[in-house]
Simulated assay, not measured.
Amino acid sequence: MTITLIAAAAENNALGKDNQMIWHLPDDFKRFKQLTTGHYIIMGRKTFESFPKPLPNRTHVIITRQQDYTAEGCIVVNSLEEAIKACPQDEEVFVIGGGEIYNQSIATANKVELTRVHGVSPEADAFFPEIDLSKWKMVEEVFHPKDEKHAYDMTFQTFIKK
């Protein structure tokens, strides 16, 4: 199983505030959709509740401490370990947030798909964990300049565990 963390984070690792993303980057959304469609996606309850509806063509695995939590068509578990066990063991699985779930899962992850958002250090209450370059190797980096649809420069980065 490949466990991939996928996120968009500012240079200060900011992810979001008040359960909302800080920016609107259509090409980052396209990349997220392209990479995660057809796969299991693991997330915390608050991340799930930030969506207007479940994301199409993906199996949602929601981690919550609430014992009686239900979400139609989704798998609900109470720990990261249970979430991983609920996923196919021979496929790539994506961890999509939030900050607490990323912090719990970075040690077991094999891959990180990070959109690094440049030129902004927003106020945030959720952060992506620091990527320790003694443990991770960047294998791909694609710069995307800001344009009429994107307020910020960004770089799509792929890391694999050494």
Rank of each mutant, 00 (worst) to 15 (best):
I106P: 01
I41R: 04
V117S: 04
I41K: 06
Q89M: 12
K33R: 14
T47N: 02
I106T: 05
I84E: 08
L55K: 09
W23L: 04
F127I: 01
L55S: 12
A124N: 02
N57A: 14
E91N: 14
Q34V: 13
K17A: 12
Q66T: 12
P52D: 12
T36A: 00
K30Q: 10
Y69P: 03
G119L: 00
S134K: 11
P54S: 07
V76S: 04
Q67P: 09
H24R: 14
A126S: 06
M21R: 00
A124R: 05
Q89S: 13
V112L: 12
Q34N: 15
P54F: 05
D28E: 09
K111Q: 10
A109L: 01
E72M: 07
H118P: 06
F127P: 01
K137H: 11
G44L: 02
Q104P: 03
P122K: 01
T47A: 02
F51I: 10
S50N: 11
G97H: 01
G97F: 00
T70K: 15
S79A: 08
D147Q: 06
I101R: 00
K53M: 13
A126H: 01
E91F: 11
M138I: 04
N110L: 09
K17F: 13
W23I: 03
F29A: 12
S121T: 15
T70S: 13
A86W: 08
S134T: 15
K17T: 12
F128K: 00
A126D: 03
E130K: 13
D68R: 08
C87E: 05
K46T: 04
K146H: 11
E82K: 12
A71D: 07
P52Y: 09
P26K: 08
T36N: 01
T108A: 15
K46V: 04
A107V: 14
K137N: 15
P54C: 12
I106K: 02
H39F: 03
I84L: 14
L15W: 00
T115Y: 01
R116H: 03
E123R: 08
E148I: 12
T108P: 15
C87P: 05
E140H: 15
K33L: 07
S134F: 11
L35Y: 11
T36G: 00
Y102I: 00
Y40N: 09
V117F: 06
P56L: 06
E140T: 12
N78V: 01
E82V: 01
I131L: 04
K137Q: 14
F51S: 09
W23Q: 08
D132F: 09
R58T: 09
L35S: 07
V77M: 00
A86G: 09
A86S: 10
D68F: 01
T115L: 03
F143S: 10
W136S: 06
V76W: 02
M138N: 10
R65W: 04
V77S: 03
E100C: 13
I75W: 06
K46E: 04
T37K: 05
N110P: 12
R116N: 05
M21D: 02
R116V: 10
